[in-house]
């Protein structure tokens, strides 16, 4: 419960944060801390310093670009996302996801950037952001780079954010008119961490699916995009999925076997497709 010895640093700007990360060996970013501090309590990691970015104004809040893309500061909390009329107007699925996350207390501290940078396979946001074609802005000493989800999420607890880099913002393009997003997951208990998660986005024009994103969470190290399934959905009217068998390399854990998780991923996938189809019919 007592943290290992650690230094606390609080830079004022994103650039300062990056400079600090590059100068202080063993330093890591502290965003909301709702996972990282637990990791430290359990002695599972021993960074030398925490670089707190939670209060950096430039990393907080949401705005829309001229082409209606949503830009979310990486240190924006779930509570802020859930209560933002701007987010709800253009990206209700992001607001809904944030509103249902963990619990009241954690929503006030936990950040979308932290959720992504941790990339715990059970985390909610990575698969959703992958389905929304989000872009990840990463600031380093040498400047900024922007990555797609498949470039950003590299594996269990691993992302493309380097040692002296900082995720500054997540940019979500405006969804095309007629686009629907559905999310289904199976949890431990009524509403706890996920055993399997599926996010489905269908872009529908004139009753035809023109594009699709199908992404699984909680079954694999990173959000898993299922291109084969997407191809099955594109080009025809929105329709439920036939039986699909997924070839997933997933693992046993305390909440379920690999086989069960695989099957549950299939169930959640079917359900998410069905929900998206229903939504597109409205």
């Amino acid at each position: 419960m007592i943290l290992p010895p650690i230094q606390y640093l609080r830079p004022a700007t994103p650039a300062d944060a990056v400079a600090t990360l590059s100068e202080v060996d063993g330093s890591v970013v502290l965003a909301g801390g709702q996972t990282l501090l637990n990791v430290l309590k359990l002695d599972l990691a021993h960074p030398a310093a925490l670089v707190d970015v939670h209060r950096i104004d430039a990393l907080r809040g949401v705005r829309h670009t001229e082409d209606s893309a949503l830009v979310i500061g990486a240190a924006t909390t779930y509570a802020e996302l859930a209560s933002s009329p701007d987010v709800r107007r253009t990206h209700p699925e992001v607001a809904d996801m944030a509103a249902g996350l963990v619990d009241r207390q954690v929503r006030n501290r936990g950040t979308i950037g932290g959720n992504c940078c941790l990339n715990d396979p059970t985390n909610n946001f990575p698969p959703l952001l992958a389905a929304l074609d989000a872009r990840f802005r990463i600031l380093g000493v040498a400047g900024e780079r922007v990555l797609r989800a498949d470039e950003f999420f590299l594996g269990t607890l691993t992302t493309a954010v380097g040692r002296a880099e900082l995720l500054t913002a997540i940019e979500i393009p405006a969804l095309p008119t007629g686009s629907v997003v559905a999310h289904e997951h199976l949890q431990v208990g009524a509403d706890s961490w996920a055993l399997a998660r599926a996010v489905v986005r269908l872009d529908v024009t004139d009753h035809v699916v023109t594009d699709a994103r199908v992404v699984l969470g909680a079954v694999y190290g990173s959000p898993l995009r299922l291109s084969d399934v997407e191809r099955m959905l594109v080009g025809s009217a929105p329709a439920a999925l036939p039986e699909v068998e997924l070839d997933l390399d997933t693992a046993d854990d305390v909440h379920g076997s690999a086989a069960y998780r695989r099957e549950m991923a299939e169930v959640q996938l079917r359900r998410a497709v069905r929900a998206a189809v229903e939504r597109s019919g409205r």
Partner: peptide, 19 residues
Amino acid sequence: CTVRWDGQLVKSCMVLAVQ
């Protein structure tokens, strides 16, 4: 360990005192 910090409900085991 729930408290309110600057008006927001938080778990005080997931906040550093220096923060």
